[in-house]
Design a protein around this nucleic acid. Structure first.
Lengths: 220, 220
DNA sequence: ACGGCTTTGTGTACGCCGTACACAATGCTA
DNA sequence: TAGCATTGTGTACGGCGTACACAAAGCCGT
């Protein structure tokens, strides 16, 4: 709600504009919204400020978003895509030579690690992605260059499926397992970003993150 | 941020007042703030609305709270007390005849169960208690009638200590264990109250809650 | 080429919010 | 009882989301 790590304070070019039409206002507003979310979380996504940054009068926003809420949803969706990209990048680092069981375990850890890192490196986006009542969990992310079109939640499900295929997770434990794993990292992310673990050193953060993933792996 | 279970919509008596002095404005504002938080979470704790309910002009609040933020902190503190009371009530139900190990395990579950129940039955207060950067985690709650003065986090610590004493949890795993356990229930509470598990039946909620506590117990 | 329709940005306005500052009513203490 | 400290009031400011009427620009069929 208040203190976020400053991610990028580069003052955006005051976007003078000679044409009456903006050209790509929707995108500009969304981008401004993302910046605001990065710097201050969902509450910082303020319609009037976004329009200011786009160099446009407040009401112009309503030609592209029916309300502040819809802008926020668009930002949220972008944040989820960003997280999905990070997860896929982390998944790509899983060693190929390992046994199926080890590879599956490593995949799950990759998902968890990416999630926790994202929460700490992009706190504002993270909270924007998740501190909003979720109406669209199941939907895939519109696939774009460089990602599979699967959202973070689906990626977690994939990892759990692999765990079952590899014989690590008994099939009867599979249903609902994503919610257990998700709960754990979600909660730790809160503690790390706005809870009592806020002031831990980066090493301590990593350590508790790994320990949490141990707990999940063992207890799932 | 938007939809909370309506807890009590009883229209408060429009508080006419003949005296210039209110008498107990601070308490009235706090109570109004608690009602607002119950019904709508932290964002619904609106200074002007609280003063309206107290039958007083907006600025009067500033004689008792330096800002909206301070009122919110007071509400948050009340919410934490309420949760602590629930935890202690649940702890009191742990059977006395059991072995130390079983009693310790049951205590931990009692803490977790109370937490999850509170999140679902008092969603607004729950979010007010925890969706706010926490400046005061370590501090005990001012002891009042009927509670021990220990806050929810300390109660969790106590339960873990008992687990160590009973030989269930190896002592070397004790440090930091509260954060693992807390993460898990915290995360599940989010999923249950504003995440994809929002629409589960009450039985399903209980089931996943128990499963999560199993995971914690096994993986700690 | 041009008239009209659609799209997109502007101007003005309303009612909320938090809060600052000067002022008035009250209660408390010397 | 006089004066002071406390507590509530009145007025005001700037910021917010957003509704509504209007204006500029693009687009399309003739």
């Amino acid at each position: 709600m208040s203190t976020y790590k400053i991610v990028s304070d580069a003052t955006i070019s005051p976007p003078e504009r000679s044409t009456y039409r903006h050209g790509d206002l929707r995108r500009a507003l969304l981008e401004a919204g993302i910046q605001l979310a990065r710097a201050g979380g969902p509450d910082a996504v303020v319609l009037r400020e976004a329009t200011r940054r786009a160099g446009v009068v407040p009401n112009a926003a309503y030609r592209h978003f029916a309300s502040r809420w819809e802008l926020l949803q668009a930002v949220r969706s972008a944040a989820l895509s960003a997280l999905a990209r990070r997860m896929e990048a982390e998944l790509a680092r899983v060693p190929r030579g390992a046994s199926p069981a080890d590879a599956a375990r490593a995949s799950l850890r990759a998902i968890g690690t990416a999630y926790l890192r994202f929460a700490q490196e992009e706190t504002g986006l993270f909270h924007t992605a998740f501190a909003i009542p979720d109406e669209t969990r199941g939907e895939p992310i519109p696939a774009k260059a460089g990602n599979s079109g699967r959202n973070p939640f689906q990626l977690l499900g994939d990892a759990l499926d692999r765990l079952v295929d590899a014989g690590v997770l008994p099939p009867e434990r599979r249903p609902g397992a994503e919610y257990l794993a998700w709960s754990a990292v979600r909660g730790l992310a809160m503690l790390l970003t706005e809870g009592p673990l806020r002031r831990l050193t980066s090493a301590e953060r990593d350590a508790i993150g790994q320990r949490l993933l141990d707990m999940v792996e063992k207890g799932l």
